[in-house]
Amino acid sequence: MPRGSAKKATVADGDGAKTSADLTMKNAKVPRTERGRRTMRAILDAAAIEFGAHGFGDTSIVSITQRAKVALGSFYTYFDSKEEVFRALVNDMSDRVKQHAATAMSANHNALERERAALTAFLQFAREHKEIYRIIDEAEFADPASYRAHYEGTADRIFERLTEGSESGELNNDLTEAHAWAIMGMNVFLGLRFGVWSEEMSAEEVAAVAHDILSGGLRKR
């Protein structure tokens, strides 16, 4: 079993007390006051709407500040460029997805129930923030490092949970990083189909289908 991934996931999930605005990116100018945090949050929320609606190329700093109702100078207090706020937004959205899933999981859940709860939470988040798919997709070209970090971080967290399930005896002991990426791939496209394109099934129903695949497979019983 690959050894580095689970360790990296533990580091990535550390310090749950910080807000998503605090965790946006290493190079962002982290606000030190509550007013500053509200301003930064407003900029990130406005950026999510603008990038989600118009894409990276057709979004401007001015359109972001106008939507956020902040002065242009306030933008440059925290970000040096459109590229930097986009990078911060990708990291911010990744962190919010992580926190949303973490909140949904309980210590009483077994290994597969944790995956079911995490997927349910992700589907709910995707329905409330449909722009996440366009933003993450655009990151592949606008900021490839953030794009890769988003998916690697997500897969690391899944692999960490699988590892814990293996060590507790709940899951097979030959699970690898590829299993985590397979689960993530399933979740991503379920979110696209039943979170962004339609909501014809409840998040719980969709997660139940994925749970059935993970627990029982597709072979006729």
Rank of each mutant, 00 (worst) to 15 (best):
L214F: 08
T65K: 01
I158F: 09
E140M: 06
S106T: 13
R148P: 05
M201P: 05
E205C: 01
E113G: 07
V206L: 07
E177C: 03
A182G: 14
S166M: 13
R148K: 11
R221T: 12
K69W: 04
F141H: 13
T154I: 11
P144S: 02
S81V: 06
N110H: 13
M93L: 15
G4Y: 14
F189G: 00
D174T: 15
L192P: 09
I136C: 00
K220D: 12
A71H: 15
F122S: 11
A118C: 02
R96L: 07
F79Q: 06
M93C: 03
A178N: 11
S60M: 09
M201H: 14
L119N: 11
K26V: 03
H109K: 06
G73P: 05
I43C: 07
A126T: 09
V97C: 13
M184G: 01
Q99M: 10
L72H: 15
L218Q: 07
S81R: 00
R32G: 10
I158Q: 03
T10E: 15
V97K: 05
I183S: 04
E50Y: 00
A107C: 07
P144F: 06
V11A: 12
A182P: 04
R38E: 13
P144A: 06
F86R: 09
I135R: 05
R116S: 08
A102R: 14
A107W: 02
H211N: 05
R116V: 07
L72K: 15
S106V: 02
R127N: 11
L119V: 08
L72Y: 12
L218K: 03
S106Q: 13
I61E: 05
L214C: 04
E205N: 10
L218N: 01
Y76H: 15
P144M: 05
L23H: 03
A12G: 00
M93D: 03
P2M: 06
A17V: 00
I135L: 01
E84G: 00
I213D: 02
I64L: 04
E177F: 15
M25T: 04
H179C: 14
E84W: 07
T103R: 15
E164K: 14
A9G: 11
I61Y: 04
E83W: 04
P31N: 07
I158L: 12
V90E: 01
K82M: 05
D22R: 02
E138M: 05
V97G: 08
V209D: 08
P31T: 02
L72E: 14
L112Q: 04
E34N: 04
G36V: 06
L119M: 13
R161F: 07
R127S: 12
R41W: 06
A28W: 05
E160M: 13
Y133S: 02
F79M: 04
R161C: 01
A180N: 10
S63C: 05
T154F: 05
F194M: 02
G191V: 02
K220R: 15
R127M: 12
K8H: 14
R67M: 09
E160W: 08
R32H: 09
A149D: 13
A208K: 11
L175K: 10
W197G: 01
E84R: 07
A53I: 01
T10D: 12
E160Y: 11
R67W: 02
L119Y: 00
D92P: 02
S168H: 12
D174K: 11
R41L: 14
M40S: 08
A47Q: 10
S5M: 10
R38D: 09
